[in-house]
Design a protein around this nucleic acid. Structure first.
Lengths: 207, 207, 207, 207
DNA sequence: GGATAAGCGAGACGGTACGTCAAGTCTTAGC
DNA sequence: GCTAAGACTTGACGTACCGTCTCGCTTATCC
């Protein structure tokens, strides 16, 4: 269980940090669109090749920086009830909008580059979804959510709203919205279907 | 209401159509990221300057093409009840995922270019929101939705879900989802608040 | 010998003058290299087509302007002796260096465009040479120049010096130089060959 | 006198030669006016940026090619007498008219671009003048030329003639002309002033 | 006086080259 | 074998003019 290191000069941790820092600084100052591998390398005082050796694109750099800095992940401690859990999670999540520039930049890249899209989903987005899914699963186990409710749909609605407002920036996106959303979701999952129409068949499985 | 034409050679409608067509073809074949103004001009058999004269970016071209081709706008005829209206609108809307490449490409551009973001919102996104808002307003007037429900939030949740799935492409996005969503929304707006907790105060105004 | 004019709107003299003026002004202000047909037309308040209808290049415009403005041609009245004639002609000619920008611009164009070179030679340069040739021919007839002197060579040396200094702008170019040159030429054509070497065979025809 | 090389990949001599060659070939085939930086790069199989990195214009490229290829400079060995020196130098110089296209192209550029004009003068024209000046200075030291003769004027007359005929291409320009010119110059500098007129005061200093 | 014809200002058209930027790769010397 | 440096090929960028064309309009001659 050694360090597992071959011959040759070892990777420079200083260079790695310099690159991640330079990327975040440039991003804050000039926005994601103005980021370039060239610029990151220059600002970090690092050879371009060193950047390319470890990351394949500017998005890769930013993603790593984001993950490293957001290691203080939004955890979901069990508070006993769905309402309490949801409220804690959503207010915490919707408080994150300070990362707007980073997140929308990465999303833009993911939309343009399918390869990065996979990395972005797997290394970032899905780990967030997992936390919310855990909350809902717990609530279902407690019987707070009917078994016929499509929990994936609920998750997508929560994150859909978050991303939509992050991207459009046309409406507020803070704790109050999280609280509001909690209420709406609780209503939706607890109420019986209102009408009799065929449009909603809550009792059937939703594939 | 005249033709409103100044002196000089009039704009060539043929060139305009050639550009829009070339852009859509290139987009379908190679994706939005591979689109270039240069390539559009070449494929359209048009001078680069002619493209720049009328559009300021590839996103501008694609947006115009999208709007022109989607002139068959999603209208919202009054079907009498919220459920019927919603079902019609949502199934129609969620059927649109054939435009995935176009829409995600434009969104990527909007995320990178604030100037284009404004155009995209104003000329496309908001006109879609307006249709849904109309349905909800009608329902509120009929008393089908409590007055204290934040209708903008509902709209954002619907489009949030649509966009989130469009972008992540991790879950289905077709008519069934539209129907499912109809059910969920109807429950949410019709049910009384489930608990008594302070987290959701449906009876107060939501700021 | 009538006006020889068919049907149709006659050429606008106003436009012609406006173009020539605009060209000379732009030339004075920004130099020949910065002249463009487009710019000339715009400054003259004239359609581009109107310029192209009557002139085939910016050089053409400038040449016509030059000729029209230099109509007050350097004539060569017979002053009786070669020395007097030469002195008058050369001092007058070398006084012209105010036209430096125009002349060097046209020469540049002539060097780049063989077609214009012909026009420049025939309509401008050769008419200048003719005046000097007349002086030398008169002197030869009077016996002031030995018959074996190549008068074309003399002419080329005079204009060669003029153009060389115009172009390089490394040495003075005014009346004193004209006077100095007169002296040198007089010596060259009046003296017997200094040596006996075969290098100069003044008695043979010079082809 | 070391290699004086910093870090980083060294400049590619192959690319340099390819560019200079491509320029000369294009120039020979299509003339100076048709030369473009773009075309040179393409023909040399080199990126446009590589050309711009080392040269700032097509004229710069051609000038360097000319100087490199004309390294076999016209030297002026001392043959003992002015006549012999002059004859050798002028016949050699006037033999060079094979470079007509190159030289007139560069001169055109110099006339259009003052910045290049400086480079052209300093790196090419003046080095030629220096050779001739050396010859005249030697002759003056030997007493073959009166001290009151303006040697700069003589030099300008020689090169003036050369350039005038190079540019106008209306008269021959080969060894015979060189020989002819030798004779004319010898006469001019050795003869006493022919007349008594005030126009030429050979015994006074010429300002 | 109406038809015909050419010139006019304006400005869009298809092109070509410009000079710049960043991409991603390669080649040094040095640690 | 990693590092900083920096030259390399590639290709799109957005701009400037080129010379041509197509408008509506004006100004002439000719029937």
């Amino acid at each position: 269980m050694t360090d597992q290191r071959g011959p040759g000069r070892p990777r420079s941790e200083a260079a790695r940090q310099a690159v991640l820092n330079a990327a975040m600084l440039d991003l804050d100052e000039h926005g994601y669109a103005a980021l370039t591998m060239q610029g990151i390398a220059a600002r970090a005082g690092v050879g371009k090749q060193t950047v390319y050796r470890w990351w394949s694109s500017k998005a890769d750099v930013v993603l790593e920086a984001l993950i490293e800095r957001a290691e203080k992940i939004v955890v979901a401690p069990d508070a006993g009830t769905l309402e309490a859990d949801l409220d804690a999670f959503l207010t915490a999540t919707f408080r994150e909008h300070g990362l707007r520039r980073v997140l929308t930049g990465l999303m833009a890249q993911a939309l343009l580059d399918p390869e990065f899209a996979v990395a972005f989903r797997d290394r970032f987005l899905f780990s967030r979804r997992a936390a919310l899914r855990q909350i809902l699963d717990r609530a279902a186990a407690r019987g707070e959510i009917p078994g016929d409710v499509d929990r994936e749909l609920l998750i997508d609605m929560v994150y859909g709203l978050l991303w939509y407002r992050l991207m459009l920036d046309h409406a507020p996106l803070g704790e109050p919205v999280g609280r509001q959303l909690t209420g709406l979701l609780l209503r939706a999952v607890s109420a019986p279907p209102p009408g009799t129409g065929a449009a909603s068949k809550p009792s059937g499985p939703m594939s």
